[in-house]
């Protein structure tokens, strides 16, 4: 009889579980700046987790994730600070708006493939950037300063940390649930071979749209947390570059792997931090590392790690079975 969890996923659970425990401990011990960095990392991870489903499973190359983060961030700012409503309302409004926008963009976009879809979604993020820049109620080019929220300051700034951690863990669980169930398998077939998917009775548009909306919802959540963290939203923060960065995070981490977005986000947040000492060169070093990772390992950082682990494991299996089977 097979156990419920596939063996490959067991190592992943171990890593995720230990990491979560460490992050909980870190929340109580680390200083403000380190906690701030971790929250930024979690925000990118949450958004990347969402994006990983369309990109990694359905081969839906969405380059508009920054646009959904903008939706979450601006909705949060307007609801809490223009309308002075509680954050819970803002959170729900962000999610609802993300679903609505996801459907509006996704329905036409899911008819397209690969490159066309990438450009259309990219243009979507670009358009939102210009929209918030040109309207008064979104603060125009200056953006919006937010009222201080309970979540921002509570427990000397730890509330937002644990909230981000909670959302990231829930996002990971949701991704796992989809990846290892009927929907995830259907999405994989859709990504690999649409004709086969059709003849297996899979409604292609439904699953593609679902994956796209999953990404838009997690993107909006990430954007909302980001707005709370910084107490300020500005168009430049959510410019088209953010969409490119999110896409890159998924690819650098290792697309289609659940822990990939966490590694990709760590790369994107961590490398500039490490290379900060190099002053203006930090960006250059980051770009070179980016190119190196995607060129050398199409499977991203996780691809490199899995290759190493696989080599070690094969080595030990070979040693163990060498006596039993002659080649």
């Amino acid at each position: 009889m097979l156990s419920r969890v596939p063996p490959a996923a067991r190592g992943g659970w171990l890593v995720a579980g230990v990491a979560t425990l460490l992050l909980i401990l870190a929340g109580f011990t680390l200083g403000n700046y380190e906690r701030y960095l971790i929250v930024i990392w979690l925000i990118y991870s949450i958004s990347g987790l969402g994006l990983n489903l369309p990109i990694g499973f359905g081969q839906i190359y969405s380059l508009g994730q920054g646009g959904f983060m903008l939706v979450g961030a601006y909705t949060t700012a307007i609801v809490t600070s223009t309308w002075h409503l509680p954050y819970a309302v803002a959170l729900i409004a962000s999610l609802v708006l993300a679903v609505v926008v996801g459907i509006l963009v996704g329905l036409p976009a899911m008819r397209l493939r690969l490159f066309s879809l990438a450009i259309v979604t990219f243009a979507f993020g670009f358009m939102l950037f210009h929209v918030v820049k040109s309207f008064q109620f979104t603060g125009g080019p200056q953006g919006l300063f937010m009222d201080p929220l309970w979540l921002t300051d509570a427990f000397s700034g730890r509330a937002i940390y644990f909230f981000a951690l909670l959302v990231a863990v829930l996002g990971l669980l949701a991704s796992y649930s989809i990846a290892h169930s009927k929907s995830g398998r259907a999405l994989l077939v859709v990504g690999q071979n649409e004709t086969a998917a059709r003849s297996l009775g899979i409604n292609i548009t439904y699953y593609k749209l679902a994956a796209f909306i999953f990404a838009s919802v997690l993107g909006a959540l990430a954007g909302s947390i980001h707005a709370v963290l910084t107490s300020y939203v500005a168009p430049e923060t959510y410019a088209a570059e953010l969409s490119v960065t999110m896409f890159a995070a998924v690819m650098i981490g290792g697309k289609g792997k659940l822990l990939g977005p966490f590694l990709g986000a760590a790369f994107i947040v961590g490398i500039p931090e490490v290379t900060q000492a190099a002053r203006g060169l930090a960006e250059v070093i980051y770009a070179i590392l980016f190119i190196l990772v995607v060129t050398v390992s199409p499977g991203g950082i996780l691809g490199i790690l899995e290759g190493l682990i696989g080599r070690l494991r094969r080595g030990s299996i070979k040693a163990a079975t060498a006596g039993e089977r002659a080649p």
Binding site: A118, A248, M251, E283, V284, I291, T295
Partner: peptide
């Protein structure tokens, strides 16, 4: 797709170098 992402990397690199 991987090749296309490399050009995204190049986009980042050229921009960074120019700003530097």
């Amino acid at each position: 797709l991987n090749l296309t992402v490399r050009t995204l990397g190049l986009y980042t690199l050229i921009y960074a170098v120019s700003v530097y």
